[in-house]
Design a binder for these strands. Structure first.
Lengths: 147, 147
DNA sequence: ATAGGGCCTCTAGTCACTAGAGGTTCAAGA
DNA sequence: TCTTGAACCTCTAGTGACTAGAGGCCCTAT
């Protein structure tokens, strides 16, 4: 008879936690598996592969929506694979934008720390920078760095 | 008589949206303002300063918890300002770690794209990379990049 | 006096899970 | 075969930091 995995087996083999696997099922990312007579989930090799795929896509930072999309694409081996390129390229651009935003932020933060004297809060340049809105002239716009 | 601002005035002057200001009040970040006879909020100059302070701290990426902490510190000008240094330094380290994680991710993503041929999904190297768990040997650990 | 834009509260939704309560099932050892 | 306890089940609610909407009241300019 075929291999059969409990939800805990899947969790151990993929590093994805048990409640997360159930969550993935609830949002339709994983198919509903067979159940034992006692109502416990039993998975086959396919489910393990799917879950690993999801884990990898998530590790690349794809949001669930894109993971859905990627799974759909992967399910049709005969189709052309341009969409994948587009998804990966989109993700790459996002990551690059985030890096440059964070790099700017890093520079501002280390600017705050550089040459900062330990005095009282009243004399503190850092607090001043937060308080003084003249430092934040029109046009100087800091976006929230991580949405 | 003293200056008096409606919640909409504050929103316009700080760039923070009206519902967000109410939210900040609800979590205790902003003090509860006076009200008109008709129950509408009326703020003074202090509230405007506080909200600007919050906006700046958030722009530096501090989580709300740290913003709370920073506000507490700023409220006591006579105390020493070491804690501020610690908070900023901590934030800097976080940002640097995030940058290096994202940089690794960027390299992996552009590695996927580099030399990728447009064929069918079945032959697609990218899909393969997501599917094939041998590419993901024990020890090779990708964390989720942005929590 | 009235029009309409701004304000009020309250609930629910977002994303991707995580935690807990309260109860059932499975599998290994005696 | 029985027992034990780890693993499983469902369901609800909570996280962070807001955002959106419903349904209704207020303020001010004309």
């Amino acid at each position: 008879m075929a291999e059969s995995f409990s939800i805990g087996d899947l969790a151990r083999r993929t590093g994805i936690k048990v409640p997360t696997i159930r969550y993935y099922e609830s949002i339709g990312l994983m198919p509903e598996p067979d159940r034992t007579a006692g109502n416990q989930r039993r998975y086959g090799r396919d489910a393990l592969d799917t879950l690993n795929f999801i884990a990898h896509a998530r590790a690349f930072g794809f949001p669930m929506k894109s993971v859905h999309h990627l799974l759909d694409i992967a399910a049709h081996p005969e189709r052309p694979c341009e969409d994948i390129d587009a998804l990966v390229a989109e993700r790459l651009i996002e990551v690059e934008m985030r890096i440059s935003g964070l790099t700017r932020l890093r520079d501002e933060l280390s600017g705050l720390l550089a040459g900062h004297e330990h005095g009282t809060v009243g004399e503190c340049r850092i607090i001043e920078a937060f308080s003084d809105h003249s430092l934040c002239a029109p046009g100087h716009k800091h976006d929230l760095p991580m949405e």
